[in-house]
Simulated scan of single mutants.
Amino acid sequence: MQALTDLPSLQQVAASLTEYWSPRVVAEFDDSYVKVAKVHGSLAWHSHEHEDEVFFVLKGHLRIELAQGAVELPEGALYVVPKGVEHNPVAEQECHIMLIDKKSTLHTGNVTTEKTRSLNEQLRPL
């Protein structure tokens, strides 16, 4: 059994990822997943009709564009995008993030792009 002190940090897991905008599930609780991702550039304008989405910046800076303006998230900042709100995450430089989503949340919500990842892709072993 792996000792708790041997577990990698979320920052280490995010840094080890090789693909941008490809979240990986690192934990689950109740009806939610905790994910980490390495991001750079723009994801896509989308919304999640029935789910809120939590963004926490582990490293770098993330901007979440919204219809009424943008939210700037420095390292250590957290923001909740309310259900139904159209948004577009953007990272001008490489950024590492943690996401908390309900298990029913689709990666890019109501749109599908070349960056959209299925739940099976997000659940792949690290």
Rank of each mutant, 00 (worst) to 15 (best):
M1Q: 11
Q2M: 14
T5L: 04
P8Y: 00
Q11R: 15
A15K: 15
A15H: 15
L17I: 07
E19Q: 15
E19I: 00
Y20Q: 13
Y20E: 14
S22I: 01
R24Y: 02
V25S: 04
V26D: 01
A27G: 13
F29H: 08
D30A: 08
D31S: 11
Y33S: 05
A37W: 03
A37P: 04
K38G: 00
H40V: 09
H48G: 06
E49R: 08
E49G: 01
H50T: 13
E51H: 12
V54T: 06
F56H: 15
V57N: 04
L58R: 05
K59H: 12
K59M: 03
E65R: 13
E65Q: 12
A67V: 06
Q68T: 09
Q68C: 00
G69R: 06
A70F: 10
A70G: 08
V71L: 06
E72W: 02
L73M: 11
A77W: 07
V80S: 01
V81C: 11
P82A: 12
V85E: 12
N88H: 09
N88M: 12
A91R: 12
C95Y: 10
I97L: 11
I97T: 05
I97P: 06
M98Y: 01
M98C: 13
I100W: 00
I100R: 02
D101P: 00
T105K: 02
T108L: 13
G109H: 05
V111S: 09
T112R: 13
T112K: 14
T116R: 07
R117F: 03
E121N: 04
L126C: 07
